[in-house]
Design a binder for these strands. Structure first.
Lengths: 244, 244
DNA sequence: CGAAGGATTGATTAGTCTCAACGCAAGTGG
DNA sequence: CCACTTGCGTTGAGACTAATCAATCCTTCG
């Protein structure tokens, strides 16, 4: 990625083509405060007060909740271009944590900068709303995934979603992509145990749907994987918004 | 509920006290187009294009997804005062359906009315953002609930959440409230089967935590229920926003 | 009175978890 | 440069939660 804001442009461009003025506005907001942080660290923890909007520029991160007895649910993955909740600073405290999976660079956008951005461009405002609505839709899909689908379908779905999203921001090379998650992470994201993830992955490999090793995934049979997952990408709303 | 918009006022007032001007603005938006619809009907179905923002005035509704093989995941419950996604009309099509559980009255707010309302009052705009962020937080909690908790904990959680939310809009009488869901609905909301819901409810009753019959719930041991659920209401963000 | 929807119960099975061990590769310190 | 540690993936055996299938009961309502 040659330029820090590139993934963000691509992310929002899924909703609407941005003008060069829009892009400048975004780049300015994203350039103000850039941070780098190592893998497996919290960017912000449950209970803290959110003061800024974070935008992921490179690396992978996750949203998660930890229960008092140690159980952890990963709620979503952040890939470059993703926003960690527009306007979160309205809330008094975080109800979950955001942590890194790899080394990560991210931009902090202050409340005033964020609001300024929304005042300056209706197109950006709508794109941010779109992004927020898609975040919600993804969360609903995860609820459905965990609530209704079998272990096999769940994992298939996860790979379908990640492939689609990574593709969007130019981080998938055809049907393959770098995949920094451990089987334990995958377990906590899908509501299963690491042992069962392991066995289910073997099944997916045996069925020739995916190839996963060395932190790299290749979807060897995209159509088969989609079918196994009953994957319907409508919830990603990549068809371009209504108001374009 | 003496007045149609009352639940909405109470809902938003959880974030910030509204001025009488704000209240008038809301009432006007909510009075423009009010509809009534019977139980077990769709208000809007997956695949349709959303054109308005719906606000529930009375009755219960749900958000759900239906898989091609008939499995259904209920994604959230709507009670009076709830908004069905601010700015949804930005999206090209619904990725899920919204259906009623009881007879329902709801208001349709057009895109222009909605945008007008946000332009007129920053307080309302923020309250709507708050509401949207809470919707997201609730969805995350449901993901966690289904992904990490046992059947027993899941149901306990559901009752804790509903009690808290109903209380907010004045629909809980102490620790009890009307509860129009069937065990089958509860099953589809928690990712279990109706049979297992039945058995788990019996356990909750035997443990003296709740009393459920005739479409009415009484939480007989609120503290016990919260403990069993490991219920932490922080995700409802009822502490009042930061910017008050 | 009969029909229908929902709640309840029982018996059996399947899917997933638990616990425990082992393998492998990469990294670290002496 | 080797011994040790550590993190992650893999395997096996057994236990248990929750699903499945099917029957029965209860209540409500036309």
């Amino acid at each position: 990625m040659s330029q820090p804001g590139a993934a963000l442009h691509l992310h929002l461009a899924a909703f609407a083509a941005l003008s060069s003025a829009d892009r400048k506005l975004l780049d300015a907001a994203v350039a103000r405060k850039v941070r780098t942080i190592g893998p497996r660290k919290d960017i912000i923890s449950e209970g803290e007060r959110p003061r800024v909007v974070n935008v992921l520029l490179s690396g992978w991160a996750m949203r998660y909740k930890q229960l008092s007895d140690g159980r952890r649910q990963i709620l979503s993955f952040f890939i470059p271009g993703d926003l960690c909740d527009a306007n979160v600073f309205i809330l008094g405290q975080m109800d979950h944590s955001i942590g890194t999976l790899t080394e990560v660079t991210y931009a902090e956008i202050s409340a005033t900068d964020f609001e300024h951005m929304m005042e300056c461009s209706t197109r950006i405002t709508k794109a941010l709303w779109w992004s927020e609505l898609v975040t919600l839709a993804v969360q609903r899909e995860w609820t459905t995934n965990i609530g209704q689908r079998s272990a096999y379908e769940r994992l298939a779905n996860m790979f379908c979603e990640l492939l689609a999203r990574l593709h969007l921001v130019g981080l998938a090379d055809g049907n393959s992509f770098d995949f920094p998650l451990t089987q334990n992470d995958l377990a906590d994201a899908t509501g299963m145990t690491a042992v069962h993830v392991n066995r289910t992955l073997q099944q997916l490999r045996r069925d020739g749907l995916i190839d996963l090793n060395n932190r790299h995934v290749t979807v060897t049979d995209p159509e088969g994987l989609k079918a196994a997952a009953q994957f319907n990408p409508n919830y990603l709303h990549l068809d371009g918004g209504v108001s374009n």
